[in-house]
Simulated scan of single mutants.
Amino acid sequence: MARLTGYLSHRGGLHPQEAAGLRKAASLLFDQQSRAETCRSINAQGYRTTHGNEWAPEVLARVLSHPRMAGLDDEGEPIEGFGDTVLTPDEYRRLLALFASQAEQQPAPREAFDYLLTEGLSECGLCDWNMVGTRVTSGGNPAYRCPPPRPGQASCGRVRINADRLEGPVAEEVLAELLRPGAQERLMSLLEDLRGEAERLRSHVEGAEQRFAKLREMRDVLVPSAYEAAEKATRQDVREARNRLRYLEQLIDVPVAGVSDLVAWWKSAPRTWQRALIGVEIVKVRVLASGRGRHRDPSARLQIEWR
């Protein structure tokens, strides 16, 4: 059994420094300090967890909620011969009540938003990086943004658009395209092309081991740097092929064969099928920068690349 912070073993025996840190944490919590503020305070004073890590709010709450903090068993009864404890039973019960009260005050978590144009279907108009779904705050509206740059990622982080201002206009454009004469035939032709591409990629992926075997046979006749470069390129090729195949497999099974009214179908279709149909109709949509208020019509910020 892992040692509980504050004690020398699971059988008891105080660890003086750890116990002191937990007692200070309890006092700060009783003084209406938040868990985050409490962690910052005891971390700054050099107190650490059993594993030597800095305290995090959820870890602190979990440790202080353990009944052995007050020498109690899982039923809340005193453990005979446990010895000195980090908290008194009264302090322990007060902390549990405090944590319960804080939990009741937390707003209910918002339901996860099912983004329609991620996975490469939308990209930043400034740097061509794929847009990702995000919320500015936990209570904010869902939005798309170009992710901030970081080492190895050349995104700019400068373009953002609310989800309804991106998804609504794109859906309208796709539905308008589906109302054109011959839309059903064109859609079936696109699906057939994508199925053909998927089949070629599937064969390519399945033949990867054979290509690697041939490459290994050439290892002795290639200089090490050339062999490493060839192996790296082959692995990258297979990885990209698998990713593309996974994406295509999400599109090619969209159940629209024989559908006479694609607009009515769209209105009752789950998001997965809507996303697939958009992926069949368009390659991607580029999202331009806002232009400091010039683009009141969100469609003016969008450039759709059709298949």
Rank of each mutant, 00 (worst) to 15 (best):
G133V: 09
G139C: 08
T234A: 09
G258W: 02
G291W: 01
R158W: 07
E75T: 10
R68E: 08
G13V: 05
F30S: 14
T49H: 04
L96H: 02
Q106F: 03
G139A: 10
P169K: 08
E104K: 14
V285W: 01
S299L: 07
S101R: 15
Y247C: 08
D193C: 00
L215C: 14
Q33S: 03
E172C: 09
C124L: 06
L166Y: 00
G71A: 04
E75K: 15
C127W: 01
F99D: 00
V132R: 09
E209P: 01
K267M: 07
D73Y: 10
T50A: 04
F30E: 15
L190G: 05
E249Q: 11
R180F: 00
Y227V: 02
R219G: 15
D261K: 04
D128E: 12
A19R: 11
L96V: 00
Y92N: 01
G125P: 04
P142E: 11
V170T: 09
R94F: 09
M218W: 12
E104M: 14
C127F: 09
L121D: 01
E167A: 10
E173V: 12
A103M: 06
T234L: 10
E185L: 07
R244K: 12
G207W: 03
N141E: 14
G139P: 07
K267V: 05
L96G: 06
P255M: 01
D253M: 04
D84E: 15
W129K: 15
L245C: 09
Y92P: 00
A154N: 13
G293T: 07
E123V: 14
L28D: 06
P78I: 09
R93I: 12
F99H: 03
T50F: 01
R3T: 11
L121F: 07
E228P: 02
Q17W: 10
S268A: 12
E228S: 11
D261F: 04
Q45H: 02
A229F: 06
L201P: 03
F82A: 08
V259Q: 11
G258L: 09
N53V: 00
R68M: 15
L178W: 07
V263I: 00
P148T: 14
V259H: 05
P169I: 08
L98Y: 06
L262Y: 00
Q17V: 05
Q102D: 13
G140W: 06
C146W: 05
E185V: 13
G133E: 07
L60A: 05
A44C: 02
Y247R: 15
S27F: 05
D297Q: 11
R244C: 04
A213W: 06
A97Y: 03
G83L: 13
R110F: 05
V205P: 02
V256N: 02
A44I: 00
S34E: 11
L187Q: 05
R135A: 00
V205R: 05
G133W: 02
L4G: 03
L277Q: 03
V283K: 13
P298L: 07
